[in-house]
Design a protein around this nucleic acid. Structure first.
Lengths: 335, 335
DNA sequence: ACTTGGCACTCTCAGAAGCCGAGTGCCAGT
DNA sequence: ACTGGCACTCGGCTTCTGAGAGTGCCAAGT
């Protein structure tokens, strides 16, 4: 059903459509791409491709445009992600190089991604559970309440409130903090939870320890504040003329942390693409998402990616996302 | 030059234009608003108002629309900010009531503001310098580097890195942290800086104290991380049909923290309005900004506000911004 | 001096008509 | 299996037209 030439035709149509945003016809196709056959032949191929759902016509007797299915085939079989050029790599490296702390790394990354892809960038903060705990701190703000701080090796700070028995002396609180700190330092989230369980078992009499430990465990386990940062929203305005209508739902979706987290999907250390209707969220069904996990090899910390129109340059976007993901992972692993 | 009736005409035109987004003519005006004169009379007044720069015509023989100057007069002299209704007040109160920590308060506020005004909301984090220091912490991440944490009474956490002499024992670092903490606890930023100066003077021999103190002072003084949060960006899509062109620069401006901070302006505890070209930023000259400081009476912590089209409902927007600012201030003062 | 009705004028907008051209599908011929 | 030819379709652009809304101005009325 799909011989070589038909695939070439599909590839050419997508390339052309991505570049010019106009339905592409048989004649223009043979002129611009060296297909070495006549327009009539191409027409037959196009009709066949349309039959099978890879192409569609906006209206009778206009050119063809790719469907989501067409893009999918293109991404899966017709393209290879080219590595970035040396200057591009160097640009990424220097741009990230100046980062001071974790916030800075994330915000630089999101700006960088948005800029080099001209799309909307999304970066998830590294997940605490795969990093190592550096420090725990309990700060008494009120007689009956304390602030719990947790610092990880990636520089990330999470916090929670702890209710305390009112009459607890400050010294006891401090002692509890010290004990917990000693117990979990340099452990991963999973190890820390185990260590804390033991700690509580060994000191059942203590009144301060349990509430604090519970709070720490909750922070470690649920990791409820997994944050997502968005950048380059202004690029939505450039998604295309046909986008002016569908713009509001897209902007709306980008405001919802939950939607974004779902969008990035489960983390994997390679580039994944979700095209048009493959996205669950209705507001984003005329967009595509290109995402990638980042972290160390075999240890994914979080995901980053971009959102753009389905009519996007997939090879170059995928290359950019992959490159940025690798650099960020490497950068965080070092510092 | 501006008798009562002309002002009434201007008010009617703005009211009508805000509602219908269409240039308004003399006939429609006398029909919809009880002006008790003939269209011809209104025409004379309109011509005069145009002469003086309060109105303009999109093209000859269309109706008139207000200029920035017209809106300015309207805001300054033709409107009074009405207090919100009881249900509205209650809605604000319950929406903010459930907030857990500072981040939560800010994010709820920005969502609330965006929703009730249908515009883009901007909320600045409370400035550290007017709050009181609750806790200071120094966490050694590397032999030559430590993380400095600063927690204020509003629950805000700021951080910085400190370079340390490599051979410093952990105990010294801890001791320095304790001394500094004791010196500045429950002081405002300004008081703390003074206290730290004394501390350094009294212990000139110490090698650890100075770098840490310097870092703390820098955090307190420069307050470089004054953050701004934006929400309701999807509302830009509703600013109006004529906005599709000017949309990208607006979105771009909303991404720049610096621009936003400038936009909110110096904090004052009442509502200020900046209309169209009164904004410095070129991308925002077809928008208006309604902002207000918030905090305790006579003690402004930060600013919040909304960005919308110049053709907005000023009285209701101003009322909403004022109400939210007051509630947030009160809420933070209590908790 | 202000207000009003009348009137001529301007200019946009919506719809109709018509042409152009790009593109298609199909068929017969190589 | 490919190609050239041909009839056909249909959206987009231009032009034209009429309708309608709105204006500015003037002369007359209060």
């Amino acid at each position: 059903m799909l011989d070589e030439r038909k695939l070439a035709v599909l590839r050419a149509i997508i390339t052309d459509y991505v570049e010019n945003s106009e339905p592409v016809g048989s004649k223009a196709l043979v002129e611009r791409y060296r297909l070495d056959v006549s327009p009539a032949t191409i027409r037959n191929d196009m009709a066949s491709l349309e039959e099978e759902g890879y192409l569609t016509q906006p209206h009778t007797s206009a050119g063809r445009i790719p469907t989501d299915k067409g893009y999918r085939l293109f991404v899966d079989r017709l393209t290879t992600v080219k590595p970035l050029s040396l200057p591009e790599k160097r640009a990424i490296s220097t741009f990230l190089g100046g980062a001071a702390d974790l916030d800075d790394v994330v915000s630089r990354t999101v700006r960088l991604l948005a800029q080099i892809t001209s799309q909307v960038a999304i970066v998830q903060y590294p997940i605490v559970s795969t990093a190592v705990i550096r420090h725990i701190d309990v700060i008494r703000l009120h007689p009956d309440r304390a602030l719990l701080l947790l610092v990880t090796s990636t520089g990330r700070i999470t916090q929670a409130h702890v209710e305390l028995p009112v009459e607890t002396p400050d010294a006891d609180v401090e002692a509890a903090a010290v004990r917990i700190g000693a117990a979990v330092r340099n452990l991963t989230s999973a190890q820390a939870v185990r260590a804390l369980n033991e700690l509580v078992r060994d000191s059942a009499s203590d009144t301060v320890l349990p509430p604090v430990v519970n709070a720490v465990t909750a922070l470690l386990a649920a990791d409820p504040t997994t944050r997502v940062v968005v950048g380059g929203v202004q690029n939505v305005a450039r998604f295309g003329d046909d986008f002016h209508a569908a713009m509001e739902p897209v902007l709306e979706a980008l405001e919802e942390q939950v939607v974004l987290l779902r969008l990035l999907g489960e983390a994997r250390n390679d580039v994944t693409v979700r095209i048009g209707h493959e996205n669950e969220h209705v507001g984003l069904q005329s967009t595509s998402v290109v995402a990638s996990g980042y972290g160390m090899p075999d240890d994914v910390w979080a995901t980053l990616g971009v959102v753009g129109p389905t009519r996007m340059n997939y090879p170059s976007t995928m290359a950019s996302v992959r490159a940025v993901a690798r650099y960020v992972g490497r950068f965080l692993a070092e510092g």
